[in-house]
Amino acid sequence: MSRYTLPLVVVLGGLIGAGAVWSSERFTSPGGADRARIERVVHDYVLSHPEIIPQAMQALQERQSGETVAANRDAILTPFGSAWAGNPKGDVTLVEYFDYNCGYCRASLPMIADLLKRDPNLRIVYRDLPILSEASRTAARASLAAAQQGKFLGFHDALYAGGPVSDASIKGAAAKAGVTLAALDTGAIDGEIAKNMATAAKLGMNGTPSWVVGNRVLSGALPVEELEKAIAAARGK
C-alpha cells in the first residue's frame, strides 16, 4: 500500500464516493472490509490521476505552515523598531526575511519598491535573518540598531547601495543614515536575531529571501506578479 494512501482517503473520500463516513464535526475512520475497499478505490484513483499527489502534499504543507504562522503571528508581524515600510495601517502585511549578503535579496529591492507603489494598502515588515556569514550578523546588528533609532530604511538602502558587505560599508551606511553604532543595544538586538532564527526554523525557511503573507510562506526572488497574487489571496480572506 502506498504511503500516500491513508492521507488521501480523507482528501479524496468525498470526491470519489468511497463510502467514507462524515459528520459535521469529524471524519469517522472505517474498518474491516470497508477500509480495504476504500483503500483499493483510492489506490486505483491515485494510479489513474498521479497529478493529485503533489497537489495534495502542497495543500498539506500550506495548511501546516498556516498553522505555524498563526501560532507565531506576533513574532512574524510585529516589526522591530522602524523596520517596516508602506502603510502602517495596511490591510495586508508582507514580511521579508533577508540577509544583507544575499544576492537574491538585493535583486528583490526593485520588486519591493514596485509593490509599494502599486499597493497603497500594503505594509512590509523586514526581518533580519543573517545566515550566510559573520559579516551578515554584523550587518544585521547595525540594521537593528538603525531600526531602534528610527532610521532603518535609510540604513537599509545605503548598505545595499554600498556594494559588498564589509565593516567599511556598514560604517559608511550608518554614517549616511545618521545611525550611532556606539549606542548598539546588544541584548535586545541579539535577542531579535535569535527570535528571527527560531521563527524561520519553525516556518521551514532554508534560505533568503523568504516571505510570509497571510498564512503562506514563500521562498526565493519571486516575480512581483506572484507576490501580488499571494497578497490578493490574503486580502480576500
Rank of each mutant, 00 (worst) to 15 (best):
K176M: 04
K237S: 14
P50Y: 12
V69C: 06
I112V: 15
V92W: 02
P88L: 09
L203G: 06
R73N: 11
V42C: 07
M197T: 14
A234V: 00
T199F: 05
E134Y: 03
G163W: 13
G178N: 08
G86A: 11
Y100S: 01
P50E: 10
S108L: 03
W211M: 04
A56V: 14
P223R: 08
V224F: 07
A173S: 07
L181D: 05
G214Y: 05
V217A: 00
A232D: 13
V179H: 05
R137H: 12
N121H: 15
R26M: 11
E67L: 15
V179A: 08
L159P: 03
K195Y: 04
T78N: 10
V224I: 15
C102I: 08
D157V: 11
R63P: 00
G191L: 07
L77E: 13
V21A: 02
V212Y: 00
P130Q: 11
N196V: 10
N72T: 09
S210D: 01
I231K: 03
A70K: 15
A194L: 11
Y97V: 02
D167C: 01
A200Q: 07
A198V: 07
K151R: 15
V9S: 00
W22T: 08
T78R: 12
K89A: 15
T68Q: 13
G172A: 11
S65N: 12
V41T: 08
S108K: 00
A232R: 04
R37P: 08
N72M: 07
V224W: 03
I124K: 00
Q58Y: 06
L129E: 05
D91L: 04
Y160P: 09
R216K: 15
A140N: 05
D167K: 03
I16R: 06
S108V: 00
E134R: 08
L122Q: 05
L94Q: 09
G31Q: 14
S166D: 10
A161C: 07
Y126C: 07
V21S: 03
L153H: 06
A113M: 08
C105Q: 03
N121A: 14
R123V: 08
A113I: 04
G32K: 11
T93P: 01
G81P: 01
E226H: 06
I131G: 10
N87K: 08
L47Y: 10
I38H: 00
I131T: 11
T68C: 07
S210E: 01
L77P: 03
A168K: 14
P130S: 12
L218S: 01
F98T: 00
V212C: 03
L15A: 13
L116F: 04
V10W: 05
F27L: 15
E225Q: 14
H43V: 01
R3N: 12
T186C: 00
V46W: 02
L77I: 10
V69A: 10
Q64Y: 09
S136L: 09
V46F: 05
E226G: 02
A158E: 05
D119W: 01
S108P: 01
D91T: 15
D157N: 12
P110E: 06
L15G: 04
S166Y: 11
L15K: 12
D119M: 06
S2F: 09
